[in-house]
Amino acid sequence: MIIRRIAASVLIFVSSYAFSQATSIPTNRLINPEDLIKILQSGKEQPLVLQTGSHNLFLQAHIPGSEYVGAASTDTGLQQLRKRVDSLPRNKFIVLYCGCCPWSHCPNIKPADDAMHELGFTNVKVLYISDNFGTNWVDKGFPTAKGE
């Protein structure tokens, strides 16, 4: 019985880490909320900001000006992401974010980042959200928008 329980824990651990790929995104590709705010308020070249998580979460609160493309852990979400960026110049400044789950558990952000690099985009940043969008963005009083 104990062996079975240990085996189950190991399986959950392994399956969990199979999804926990956000931690493998190189730190030089990450951007903190505070730094993104500075860029958005700078008046300089504005990035295209894309949310790659849940539409219901996006409708409740999102970064002003950002667009919802779909959960990138799903085929549909990845297709929508590729479709959205396909016609853009490969040096376009793009910021990806999700915030559905704690960073180490986010299933969406790494597939989105991978897809962008497979498409040849060279100026992509990933917003580092340690806990979730509510805690690390909304609760900090950063600008938010609701609805579409």
């Binding site: 219901n56 979460l57 915030g99 969008f133 509510g134 909304v138």
Partner: peptide, 16 residues
């Protein structure tokens, strides 16, 4: 199937 309105009514479901 949830909606954004229900999430907002519960104080915002902005993480799962």
């Amino acid at each position: 199937m949830g909606t954004a309105d229900v999430g907002s009514a519960y104080g915002g479901v902005l993480g799962l």
